[in-house]
Design a protein around this nucleic acid. Sequence first.
DNA 1: TTGTAGGCGTTATCAC
DNA 2: GTGATAACGCCTACAA
Lengths: 349, 349
Amino acid sequence: MKWRSTLDSPRKRRGAGRITLSAVAERAGVSAISVSRYFNQPASLSEVLRERIGEAVAALGYVPNQVAGGLASARGRIVGMVVPNISGPIFADTIQAFSDALAAAGYQLLLASSYFDGEKEESAVRAFLGWNPAALVLTSHFHTPACEKLLEGADVPLLEVWDYQPSRRPIQVGFSHYQVGVDAARYLHGKGYRRIAFVQNSAPGDYSAMDRRDGYADTLRELGLEPWMFVPTASAPFEAGKQAMEALMARAERPDAIVFANDNLAAGGLLAGQRAGLRIPGDCAVLGFGDYPFAPMLLPSLTTLKPPAREIGEIAAQRVLQAIGAQPAEGGVERLNLLQCRVVERESC
Amino acid sequence: MKWRSTLDSPRKRRGAGRITLSAVAERAGVSAISVSRYFNQPASLSEVLRERIGEAVAALGYVPNQVAGGLASARGRIVGMVVPNISGPIFADTIQAFSDALAAAGYQLLLASSYFDGEKEESAVRAFLGWNPAALVLTSHFHTPACEKLLEGADVPLLEVWDYQPSRRPIQVGFSHYQVGVDAARYLHGKGYRRIAFVQNSAPGDYSAMDRRDGYADTLRELGLEPWMFVPTASAPFEAGKQAMEALMARAERPDAIVFANDNLAAGGLLAGQRAGLRIPGDCAVLGFGDYPFAPMLLPSLTTLKPPAREIGEIAAQRVLQAIGAQPAEGGVERLNLLQCRVVERESC
DNA sequence: TTGTAGGCGTTATCAC
DNA sequence: GTGATAACGCCTACAA
């Protein structure tokens, strides 16, 4: 039995005992700063040194300490992102694309969810700021006053994505939900439908869905038609969709097309229609929003408006990298990035 | 016009000019270490100091610098996690639950995706290690040799989730895919089905799906039945599922039940069956795996085996917190955590 | 192209 | 209970 605890390597309480820059430098017979340059500006080193250092790094299995580096340089290679949720179908593609683009540039993603709760967002932002992030990305423009103050004082590049409020200061990457409502109404009108209903989201706090509704309503009036709103009471979206479809089709005057605030509602509606023996789109057309993964698998498959989720993530990453100078940006960083949703035509319309 | 750039606050190039611990200390009339204790061991401070410091913190809007703290204490409040992908339906719930539990304990999640690629995983692990993470979580047990070496040398608590290899060193949180295959076969057999086919995943590298297949095959033989495998060639899972259903039902001897390697395949199969006018489950029952969000929305709704995704995330977070001492663990940290999938009965079986 | 000196903001250690 | 001092590991600034 070895007396590890007392004899060999007293194991300093601090500094985890990991291999340091100096250890590599010593082994390579160079100064510490040269090893630093090996990682940060390899071009400024002679071939000879680069090779010697490379060997030492490999032999020792050295991994640069980003924490120490971040402290010394006052800028870390971390980007924080707050989304309402990770597991839903909405933001997942954006997170994925964003994360991949960052990783490719050597930056890491710090992720947190807010569940549409300002307090949660604020505490995530506070936690992120402690890590000296290179940039912060938020998914709404509504923040608590304390959060706004934090962000203002932080001097960190800030993006707001999945939303588009050109009047706000931060870089915007998103689309207009109002325009989505307009597009939905025009699309159905163009297809010949005239009694077009809109089923709202029963979940509270979904302000974006209300923007879509407003776009729908205004456009219908413009077209000389009467907007027709239905607000389900069921809280589960799938149930709410069923409820809406049943209620609307039970009326004397039925709609000939229904816009649902999102695909979950639409799926519920579709299924209720199916079970009731309705022909869709013959008796009533159905249009969703989101292009959730199940949309093509429904019967009939769901026509829906697809938000540019992946694109948002990609462009956001680009803007972040430009804002921190990790990527060139001729003419400065584009502050307003308005993207478009597009109709994915399937069978339900 | 003010001469900001030249006169006031020359703005040091380093140290981002943020409010520091000492600034708070000065304002509160105490030493820096007391402010540090205010955040880390508030119990060791007198009521008076705590109040004074609290005021100063609020007034200055001070946010502790985790980077500096991490360097000084050699342990950061960050946990790294590598998943094959973020946007798929599989890991999202795990990430969500894991992230939430960590955040509640004051830890942050650093996330990266590997796309089932060992090299990508390795580079993510290397990047994470640079941040001195409190723990690392990986979603498979297959790592590159270099990655294994990194992990070994790192002295960081390591978990492997969504997989269960009791013989391996790291903490395991997952379930047995083989057992899933067994359960699927037994479930269908118990329902009276006797000609049970299994449709494999056409995507390469999905070793877990092969484990499920083996469990199915062994169990069928045990029951005195002949295993019956089908391997689609189409690469898109939805198409592959269609292809499998069409091919199997075109045979003289049809299966009376089909196990699909996952819900995407099953959805494709279901839809192909529908369009062909098949009664499901009358003519052929369908069983999936994954309980993807669309499973209840299909027609007929899909009976499937639901993996404990959320539970994996929760337990993983618990084990992480226990391993780093942020949460008590009587009798040490449970190294083996074997969870169960369960059948979600719907209409397709 | 390479090296030296000093500090980034915090916490561990030890003394009072 | 409170404070002074010395790291933590690296990078900026400047010099050679």
